[in-house]
Amino acid sequence: MNSSLQKPTDFREMSYPPYRRGEPVALFVPCYIDQFYPRLAEATVRLLSGFGVPVRFPAEQTCCGQPAFNSGYWNEARRVASHFARCFAPFQWIICPSGSCAAMCRVFYELLDPGGKLPEVGRRVFEVCEFLVNCLGIREVNVSFPYRVTLHIGCHTRRELGVIDPPRILVESLRDVRFCPLPDAEECCGFGGTFSVKMPGISVAMGQAKAECIVASQAEWLLTTDISCLMHLEGILRRHPQGKEIRVAHVVEVLAGMHDGRPLAGPK
Protein backbone atom coordinates (compact mmCIF):
# COMPACT_ATOMS: atom_id res chain seq x y z
CA MET A 1 0.00 0.00 0.00
CA ASN A 2 2.68 2.42 1.04
CA SER A 3 4.60 2.30 -2.20
CA SER A 4 1.82 4.18 -3.96
CA LEU A 5 2.08 7.01 -1.45
CA GLN A 6 5.63 7.92 -2.31
CA LYS A 7 6.21 11.05 -4.30
CA PRO A 8 5.34 10.27 -7.88
CA THR A 9 8.66 10.24 -9.72
CA ASP A 10 8.88 12.71 -12.51
CA PHE A 11 11.90 11.81 -14.59
CA ARG A 12 11.49 14.96 -16.58
CA GLU A 13 12.55 17.19 -13.72
CA MET A 14 16.28 17.20 -13.35
CA SER A 15 19.19 19.40 -12.54
CA TYR A 16 22.21 19.40 -14.81
CA PRO A 17 25.64 18.30 -13.62
CA PRO A 18 28.39 20.79 -14.45
CA TYR A 19 30.83 19.84 -17.20
CA ARG A 20 34.49 20.12 -16.30
CA ARG A 21 36.79 21.19 -19.14
CA GLY A 22 38.59 18.36 -20.84
CA GLU A 23 36.23 15.60 -19.77
CA PRO A 24 35.73 13.29 -22.73
CA VAL A 25 32.21 12.84 -24.07
CA ALA A 26 30.95 9.82 -25.94
CA LEU A 27 29.05 10.52 -29.11
CA PHE A 28 25.94 8.43 -29.54
CA VAL A 29 24.91 8.36 -33.17
CA PRO A 30 21.44 6.79 -33.41
CA CYS A 31 21.10 4.14 -36.09
CA TYR A 32 19.04 6.21 -38.54
CA ILE A 33 21.42 9.17 -38.25
CA ASP A 34 24.35 6.84 -38.85
CA GLN A 35 22.67 5.53 -42.00
CA PHE A 36 20.68 8.44 -43.41
CA TYR A 37 22.19 11.59 -41.92
CA PRO A 38 25.94 10.99 -41.41
CA ARG A 39 26.60 14.69 -41.98
CA LEU A 40 24.58 15.52 -38.87
CA ALA A 41 26.82 13.24 -36.82
CA GLU A 42 29.85 14.89 -38.38
CA ALA A 43 28.41 18.33 -37.61
CA THR A 44 27.92 17.29 -33.99
CA VAL A 45 31.54 16.22 -33.72
CA ARG A 46 32.79 19.42 -35.34
CA LEU A 47 30.58 21.58 -33.16
CA LEU A 48 31.59 19.88 -29.93
CA SER A 49 35.31 19.86 -30.71
CA GLY A 50 34.98 23.48 -31.73
CA PHE A 51 34.05 24.18 -28.14
CA GLY A 52 37.03 22.18 -26.93
CA VAL A 53 35.08 19.11 -25.94
CA PRO A 54 37.03 15.90 -26.64
CA VAL A 55 34.68 13.57 -28.52
CA ARG A 56 34.96 9.78 -28.48
CA PHE A 57 32.99 7.42 -30.67
CA PRO A 58 32.47 4.01 -29.04
CA ALA A 59 32.69 1.89 -32.18
CA GLU A 60 30.52 -0.94 -30.89
CA GLN A 61 27.38 1.22 -30.60
CA THR A 62 24.26 0.45 -32.62
CA CYS A 63 20.86 1.70 -31.39
CA CYS A 64 19.09 2.69 -28.20
CA GLY A 65 16.20 0.25 -28.66
CA GLN A 66 13.46 2.81 -29.07
CA PRO A 67 11.74 1.34 -32.18
CA ALA A 68 11.06 -1.97 -30.42
CA PHE A 69 10.21 -0.26 -27.14
CA ASN A 70 7.59 1.99 -28.71
CA SER A 71 6.15 -0.94 -30.61
CA GLY A 72 5.61 -2.83 -27.37
CA TYR A 73 8.46 -5.33 -27.78
CA TRP A 74 10.14 -4.58 -24.50
CA ASN A 75 12.16 -7.78 -24.21
CA GLU A 76 13.71 -7.12 -27.60
CA ALA A 77 14.25 -3.47 -26.69
CA ARG A 78 15.94 -4.56 -23.48
CA ARG A 79 18.46 -6.66 -25.37
CA VAL A 80 19.45 -3.71 -27.55
CA ALA A 81 19.44 -1.32 -24.60
CA SER A 82 21.76 -3.66 -22.72
CA HIS A 83 24.17 -3.51 -25.62
CA PHE A 84 23.92 0.29 -25.51
CA ALA A 85 24.64 0.27 -21.78
CA ARG A 86 27.69 -1.99 -22.30
CA CYS A 87 29.09 0.32 -25.00
CA PHE A 88 28.62 3.51 -23.07
CA ALA A 89 29.17 2.38 -19.46
CA PRO A 90 32.73 3.84 -19.28
CA PHE A 91 31.56 7.36 -20.13
CA GLN A 92 30.24 10.03 -17.80
CA TRP A 93 28.89 12.12 -20.66
CA ILE A 94 26.97 10.71 -23.58
CA ILE A 95 25.87 13.22 -26.22
CA CYS A 96 23.28 12.50 -28.85
CA PRO A 97 22.07 14.68 -31.75
CA SER A 98 18.52 13.35 -31.37
CA GLY A 99 16.23 14.39 -28.52
CA SER A 100 14.00 11.42 -29.06
CA CYS A 101 16.79 8.86 -28.66
CA ALA A 102 18.18 10.78 -25.69
CA ALA A 103 14.71 10.61 -24.11
CA MET A 104 14.62 6.87 -24.72
CA CYS A 105 17.85 6.45 -22.76
CA ARG A 106 17.24 8.98 -20.04
CA VAL A 107 13.52 8.56 -19.43
CA PHE A 108 12.31 5.29 -20.85
CA TYR A 109 15.16 3.02 -19.69
CA GLU A 110 13.67 3.60 -16.25
CA LEU A 111 10.44 1.96 -17.45
CA LEU A 112 12.32 -0.82 -19.17
CA ASP A 113 14.51 -1.69 -16.22
CA PRO A 114 13.25 0.08 -13.06
CA GLY A 115 16.13 0.89 -10.76
CA GLY A 116 18.50 -1.27 -12.81
CA LYS A 117 21.68 -0.92 -14.85
CA LEU A 118 20.07 0.59 -17.94
CA PRO A 119 18.83 3.85 -16.38
CA GLU A 120 22.17 4.10 -14.59
CA VAL A 121 23.84 4.61 -17.98
CA GLY A 122 20.80 6.19 -19.65
CA ARG A 123 20.78 9.02 -17.13
CA ARG A 124 24.06 10.31 -18.57
CA VAL A 125 22.67 10.86 -22.06
CA PHE A 126 22.12 14.45 -23.18
CA GLU A 127 20.78 16.05 -26.29
CA VAL A 128 23.40 18.27 -27.98
CA CYS A 129 21.73 21.68 -27.58
CA GLU A 130 20.82 20.81 -24.02
CA PHE A 131 24.43 19.88 -23.29
CA LEU A 132 25.83 23.03 -24.88
CA VAL A 133 23.51 25.43 -23.09
CA ASN A 134 22.79 23.73 -19.77
CA CYS A 135 26.09 21.98 -19.07
CA LEU A 136 28.64 24.04 -21.00
CA GLY A 137 26.90 27.35 -20.43
CA ILE A 138 27.11 28.41 -24.06
CA ARG A 139 24.70 31.19 -24.96
CA GLU A 140 25.83 32.23 -28.41
CA VAL A 141 27.60 30.95 -31.47
CA ASN A 142 29.53 33.10 -33.87
CA VAL A 143 28.05 31.80 -37.10
CA SER A 144 26.31 33.91 -39.67
CA PHE A 145 22.96 32.68 -40.90
CA PRO A 146 21.22 35.54 -42.71
CA TYR A 147 17.84 33.89 -43.17
CA ARG A 148 14.36 33.83 -41.72
CA VAL A 149 14.23 30.65 -39.65
CA THR A 150 11.67 28.82 -37.62
CA LEU A 151 12.25 26.05 -35.13
CA HIS A 152 10.46 22.76 -34.56
CA ILE A 153 11.27 20.99 -31.30
CA GLY A 154 10.30 17.32 -31.25
CA CYS A 155 7.77 16.23 -28.63
CA HIS A 156 10.17 13.88 -26.84
CA THR A 157 12.74 16.66 -26.64
CA ARG A 158 10.12 19.14 -25.46
CA ARG A 159 8.09 17.06 -23.06
CA GLU A 160 10.15 14.05 -22.01
CA LEU A 161 13.49 15.85 -21.73
CA GLY A 162 11.97 19.26 -21.02
CA VAL A 163 14.39 20.83 -23.51
CA ILE A 164 12.67 23.88 -24.93
CA ASP A 165 14.91 26.89 -24.40
CA PRO A 166 18.39 25.60 -25.36
CA PRO A 167 17.83 25.13 -29.10
CA ARG A 168 15.98 28.43 -29.27
CA ILE A 169 18.76 30.26 -27.43
CA LEU A 170 21.33 28.89 -29.84
CA VAL A 171 19.30 29.58 -32.96
CA GLU A 172 18.50 33.13 -31.91
CA SER A 173 22.17 33.77 -31.24
CA LEU A 174 23.11 33.12 -34.88
CA ARG A 175 24.40 36.26 -36.57
CA ASP A 176 21.97 38.08 -38.89
CA VAL A 177 19.27 35.52 -38.29
CA ARG A 178 15.61 36.44 -38.22
CA PHE A 179 13.68 34.17 -35.95
CA CYS A 180 10.08 33.52 -37.00
CA PRO A 181 8.01 31.98 -34.21
CA LEU A 182 6.17 28.86 -35.33
CA PRO A 183 2.40 29.03 -34.73
CA ASP A 184 1.16 26.13 -32.58
CA ALA A 185 4.78 25.20 -31.97
CA GLU A 186 3.97 22.68 -29.26
CA GLU A 187 1.74 20.59 -31.52
CA CYS A 188 3.04 17.20 -32.57
CA CYS A 189 4.18 16.94 -36.21
CA GLY A 190 2.71 13.46 -36.47
CA PHE A 191 5.88 11.46 -37.07
CA GLY A 192 5.78 9.26 -33.96
CA GLY A 193 8.16 6.56 -35.22
CA THR A 194 6.29 3.51 -36.47
CA PHE A 195 3.08 5.51 -36.00
CA SER A 196 3.97 7.30 -39.26
CA VAL A 197 3.58 4.09 -41.26
CA LYS A 198 1.14 2.21 -39.03
CA MET A 199 -1.43 5.01 -39.12
CA PRO A 200 -0.25 7.03 -42.11
CA GLY A 201 -3.56 8.84 -42.59
CA ILE A 202 -3.52 10.46 -39.17
CA SER A 203 0.23 10.98 -39.27
CA VAL A 204 0.05 12.83 -42.59
CA ALA A 205 -2.96 14.91 -41.50
CA MET A 206 -0.95 16.05 -38.47
CA GLY A 207 2.10 16.71 -40.64
CA GLN A 208 0.08 18.75 -43.11
CA ALA A 209 -1.28 20.91 -40.30
CA LYS A 210 2.30 21.46 -39.14
CA ALA A 211 3.36 22.28 -42.70
CA GLU A 212 0.65 24.95 -42.85
CA CYS A 213 2.05 26.50 -39.67
CA ILE A 214 5.59 26.39 -41.05
CA VAL A 215 4.45 28.14 -44.22
CA ALA A 216 2.50 30.67 -42.15
CA SER A 217 5.63 31.50 -40.14
CA GLN A 218 7.14 32.85 -43.39
CA ALA A 219 10.47 31.24 -42.62
CA GLU A 220 12.94 30.32 -45.35
CA TRP A 221 14.51 27.62 -43.20
CA LEU A 222 12.97 25.06 -40.90
CA LEU A 223 15.40 24.02 -38.18
CA THR A 224 14.79 21.23 -35.73
CA THR A 225 16.26 19.29 -32.84
CA ASP A 226 14.92 16.01 -34.18
CA ILE A 227 15.90 14.89 -37.64
CA SER A 228 13.32 12.09 -37.56
CA CYS A 229 10.52 14.67 -37.34
CA LEU A 230 12.34 16.53 -40.09
CA MET A 231 12.40 13.52 -42.40
CA HIS A 232 8.60 13.39 -42.10
CA LEU A 233 8.10 17.15 -42.34
CA GLU A 234 10.50 17.58 -45.22
CA GLY A 235 8.72 14.79 -47.06
CA ILE A 236 5.43 16.61 -46.61
CA LEU A 237 6.82 20.09 -47.37
CA ARG A 238 8.24 18.88 -50.70
CA ARG A 239 4.69 18.16 -51.82
CA HIS A 240 3.21 21.34 -50.37
CA PRO A 241 2.52 24.10 -52.93
CA GLN A 242 4.10 26.86 -50.82
CA GLY A 243 6.25 24.63 -48.62
CA LYS A 244 8.32 23.26 -51.52
CA GLU A 245 10.81 26.08 -51.32
CA ILE A 246 11.43 25.90 -47.59
CA ARG A 247 14.85 24.51 -46.76
CA VAL A 248 15.43 22.27 -43.79
CA ALA A 249 18.29 21.40 -41.47
CA HIS A 250 19.07 20.19 -37.99
CA VAL A 251 20.01 22.99 -35.59
CA VAL A 252 23.44 21.44 -35.09
CA GLU A 253 24.18 21.43 -38.81
CA VAL A 254 23.59 25.17 -38.89
CA LEU A 255 25.59 25.80 -35.72
CA ALA A 256 28.49 23.87 -37.22
CA GLY A 257 28.13 25.73 -40.52
CA MET A 258 27.34 22.54 -42.39
CA HIS A 259 23.79 23.21 -43.47
CA ASP A 260 24.49 23.30 -47.21
CA GLY A 261 25.78 19.81 -47.47
CA ARG A 262 22.66 17.71 -47.38
CA PRO A 263 21.49 16.61 -50.79
CA LEU A 264 17.83 17.26 -50.09
CA ALA A 265 18.39 20.51 -48.24
CA GLY A 266 16.75 23.11 -50.37
CA PRO A 267 14.64 22.94 -53.50
CA LYS A 268 15.61 20.34 -56.04
Binding site: F36, S196, V197, K198, M231, G235
Partner: peptide
Protein backbone atom coordinates in the same frame (compact mmCIF):
# COMPACT_ATOMS: atom_id res chain seq x y z
CA UNK B 1 2.47 3.99 -46.63
CA UNK B 2 5.24 6.54 -46.25
CA UNK B 3 5.42 7.53 -49.90
CA UNK B 4 1.70 8.08 -50.45
CA UNK B 5 1.94 11.61 -49.14
CA UNK B 6 5.62 12.12 -48.32
CA UNK B 7 8.93 12.10 -50.14
CA UNK B 8 11.86 10.20 -48.74
CA UNK B 9 15.36 11.69 -48.65
CA UNK B 10 17.81 9.76 -50.82
CA UNK B 11 20.54 7.69 -49.22
CA UNK B 12 23.60 9.84 -48.59
CA UNK B 13 26.36 8.93 -51.04
CA UNK B 14 29.15 8.85 -48.46
CA UNK B 15 27.81 5.84 -46.53
CA UNK B 16 27.23 5.56 -42.79
CA UNK B 17 28.91 7.91 -40.33
Amino acid sequence: AWLRARDLPPLPPQGPF
